[in-house]
Structures are given as C-alpha cells and as structure tokens.
Amino acid sequence: MTAAQAERVSALLKAMADSVRLQLLSLVASHEGGEACVCDLTEAFELSQPTISHHLKVLHQSGLLERSKRGVWVYYKVQAEVLDSLGKLISSAGA
C-alpha cells in the first residue's frame, strides 16, 4: 500500500469509525432502490434530524455516499465502488 493509498484508507476509516455512521451506511445501502432520504433515516435513531444530517455530511465528504437534492429533500446513495476499493486495498495490504 502506498502512502497516498494509506491516507485515503485512513480518511475512509475515520469517517466510518462511528456507530451511527456505520448504521447509516447500512440503512442507506439496504433501503429500497439503494438510496434513502434523510426523512427515511431519522426514525431509526434517537437523534435529531440535524445530527443525522451532520453524520451524512461526513460520509458524503469522505466519498462514501453520494447525494442528490430533489425539491427540499436530499437523497443519499452508497458509493459501492469506494467500498469495494477500500476492501481491495485493505486485503492487498495483508498479502
């Protein structure tokens, strides 16, 4: 693993190093159509909508989620290729 790859993996792992964020990734990935609105996710947590939005923002900024705005709602979708790349980098580092 190169230094640049290690930096990228580190940033992704930092973004995922929170139980709420891991749950959000899982919920978005398993949601119908593979994408979810913030309004679909808040019920699963005893957290405010702004807190959920903050966690989603962290995941988006790290590249783990993509987002699109539709009217007043923002929809999130897991960047599967980023997760695949992360898994491959981690597994190749142990080889």
Rank of each mutant, 00 (worst) to 15 (best):
L59W: 06
L25E: 03
V38F: 04
A44I: 04
E7F: 05
S10Y: 11
Y76E: 04
A29I: 08
S48Q: 11
R21H: 09
M16Q: 05
V20G: 00
E32C: 00
A6S: 03
L12V: 05
V74D: 03
A15T: 03
S62I: 06
L56N: 02
L56D: 01
A44K: 03
C37R: 14
S53D: 08
R70E: 15
S48V: 06
A6Y: 02
L13G: 06
E46G: 10
K57V: 04
T42E: 05
E7L: 09
A15L: 08
L41G: 04
W73S: 13
A44N: 06
W73K: 15
L56P: 02
E32P: 00
V58G: 05
L12M: 09
E46T: 08
Q61I: 09
L41E: 02
V20A: 10
A15W: 01
K77A: 15
H60C: 15
G34N: 04
H60Q: 15
L24T: 03
I52H: 01
C39N: 12
G33E: 15
G33M: 13
E32L: 07
A29H: 09
A29F: 13
A15N: 08
V78F: 07
V72H: 12
E7K: 02
L25P: 03
V72Y: 14
G63R: 02
E66K: 06
S30C: 07
A17E: 12
W73N: 14
R8G: 09
E35K: 11
H60V: 11
S26T: 14
V38R: 03
S10D: 14
Q23S: 15
V72D: 09
D18N: 15
V72G: 07
R67Y: 05
L22A: 08
A11M: 11
L27Y: 08
L56H: 00
A36Q: 01
A6I: 05
A3W: 11
H60G: 11
G63A: 10
A17P: 06
V38N: 04
